[in-house]
């Protein structure tokens, strides 16, 4: 089980690092997916070897669905943003400030 957890942790940290360092909106989105999948591995691992049972499987399925929905919304936002600003650099998205 530790191996699963280790992989998940690596994935999670990769995802976080990706979110923290990428300026590309798509890249940030990919980082989010990595984090979510790291969490999914944890759910599945705890469902297989821990006390969580089938609940863990169900949770990870939910997370996948949510991630898909989130990806769809986020991609739509990115597309829109690109239409308006000809870029998807998240640092340029500063219109709500001031």
């Amino acid at each position: 089980m530790n191996a699963y957890l280790a992989v998940a942790a690596v994935l999670f940290v990769c995802g976080v690092m990706c979110m923290a360092t990428k300026r590309n909106g798509i890249g940030v989105l990919m980082g989010v997916e990595l984090v979510l999948n790291g969490a999914n591995i944890n759910f599945v691992a705890f469902s297989k070897y821990g006390l969580l049972g089938l609940d863990g499987q169900i949770f990870s399925l939910f997370v996948i669905v949510l991630a898909a929905a989130e990806a769809a919304v986020a991609l739509a936002i990115a597309l829109n943003f690109y239409n308006n600003h000809l870029t998807i650099d998240v640092d340029q998205a500063s219109e709500l400030k001031n």
């Binding site: 976080v16 979110m19 998240v90």
Partner: peptide, 14 residues
Amino acid sequence: LQTGQLRQYVMLIA
């Protein structure tokens, strides 16, 4: 605090 810097937020959260 609310800089609008996404990476900064992520770092903060982490």
